Structure formats: structure tokens, C-alpha cells
Simulated assay, not measured.
Amino acid sequence: MTSHYEGGCDHVHVTASAEPIDNHECHCNVCKSVTGQQHTHVAFFNWGDLTADHPEKMTRQPFNKDNPDGPLELCTCSECGAALMLDDKEKRIRVAVPNVMGYDDAAFPKATYHAFWDESKGYAKPSDGRPVYDGLQPSFVWPAGA
């Protein structure tokens, strides 16, 4: 398997075997509450393209505390607590947040757009030349579950 990107911690190594299927700056309130950042570089991968070498060492918790039965789970290392990936219980995608999950953010392709921005956020609309959407880019199609 060719490794495109590697992240994780000393106990659990996470490897991407393909390029992301979506790559954006996320402005959603859930990402803000989890990362403490105004916006966060997020990369979606097809579910089987992002894997962990020791999944038995991952602790899972709901990604969205306001929707605990939602499809995304935040996976953290059971030994050191490091954030490792978001895993989709429907096995459609897995998500890497490069600057939070142990990746070299500079090695990732630059995010191509801004997602989940709205005027109520209390800051200026991004003006870096990338498209800005109130959700995921309109052309994004959720993959079928594995």
C-alpha cells in the first residue's frame, strides 16, 4: 500500500492510501467546539482509504455532542488521548484534520473551498479567492457505505 499521508500518535498510526475526496476549510460550529479554531482544514477520504494500525487502541465518542446518535464518531487514542480521525458509522467516509491529528498540514493539498460559513458566525466572509458555501460544495456526493 502506498502511503499518501500519515498521522496519528505514538500508539496509533493513521495512514491515507489515496487522495482526499473532499478538502475544505470548515466553519461549522461542531468543528469550532472540538478544535477551538475559527475554521479548520478538513479532508474527507473514502472510508477504506484512511486506516489505523491499531483500531483496538481507539476510543470512540460522538463527534457532535448535540447529536450523539449522528453518524460521525471522534476517535482518540486510548493511551494518550490524541485525536486520530473521524469515523463514519455508515462507512462512507473517514475524516482527517491535518493540523489536529498529527499530520504534516503543509503536505496536504490546500483546501479548495470554505464550507458551512454563514453571516451569523460574527466574522467577515472569507475573501481568499476560494469559493464559500453554506454547506459542502454543491458537487460533493456522499459515497455509498462500505
Rank of each mutant, 00 (worst) to 15 (best):
H41S: 05
D134M: 03
Q37D: 12
N67W: 11
V132T: 12
T76G: 08
V12Q: 07
N29A: 15
E25F: 12
E25A: 02
I21S: 04
Y103K: 01
L74F: 09
K121G: 07
D87K: 06
Y133W: 10
D10N: 13
H114D: 06
F44T: 02
H39F: 05
M1V: 09
V12H: 08
E56G: 14
K65T: 10
H4Y: 15
G48D: 15
L72T: 00
V30G: 03
H41C: 13
T51K: 11
M85W: 06
P55N: 09
P68E: 01
S139V: 06
K89R: 14
Y113L: 04
W117L: 01
H11I: 06
A18N: 05
A83R: 06
S3R: 14
T35F: 01
T15S: 07
S3P: 00
L74D: 00
E19L: 12
R92W: 00
C80P: 04
I93L: 11
F140C: 05
M85G: 10
P143F: 12
N46K: 09
C26F: 04
A107S: 14
Y113V: 03
M85T: 05
W117H: 13
D128F: 03
C77W: 08
Y103F: 11
F44N: 12
G135S: 10
F63M: 08
D66L: 05
A115R: 07
R130A: 14
L74Q: 01
Y133P: 11
V132Q: 09
V34H: 00
S120F: 13
G135P: 00
P55G: 12
H24V: 13
F44M: 13
Y103W: 03
Y5G: 06
N67S: 13
A106E: 14
F45Y: 14
P71G: 06
A107Q: 12
A115Y: 09
E56R: 05
V141S: 11
P143E: 13
A52T: 06
S3C: 07
D69W: 04
E6G: 15
G36I: 05
A111N: 10
T112D: 10
A106S: 12
Q137P: 15
A107K: 03
D22A: 15
P20D: 03
K89I: 00
D49W: 08
D118W: 04
V12F: 09
K125C: 12
F45L: 08
Y103Q: 01
A124P: 02
C28Y: 02
A16F: 15
W47L: 04
C80S: 10
F45S: 03
H27L: 01
H11M: 06
A124K: 08
V30M: 04
N99G: 02
G36A: 04
A106W: 02
K110R: 08
E56I: 09
G102I: 03
A96Q: 01
G129E: 11
F140M: 10
D88T: 01
T2P: 13
C31A: 13
W47K: 09
A111E: 01
P20F: 07
R130E: 15
I93V: 15
A18I: 10
A111Q: 01
V141A: 15
D10L: 14
Q61G: 06
L84C: 06
E56L: 14
Y103L: 02
Q61V: 09
A124E: 14
G36E: 11
H4T: 10
E119S: 08
A96V: 09
G102Y: 04
E79D: 14
A18M: 03
V14I: 12
A82S: 13
Y5P: 04
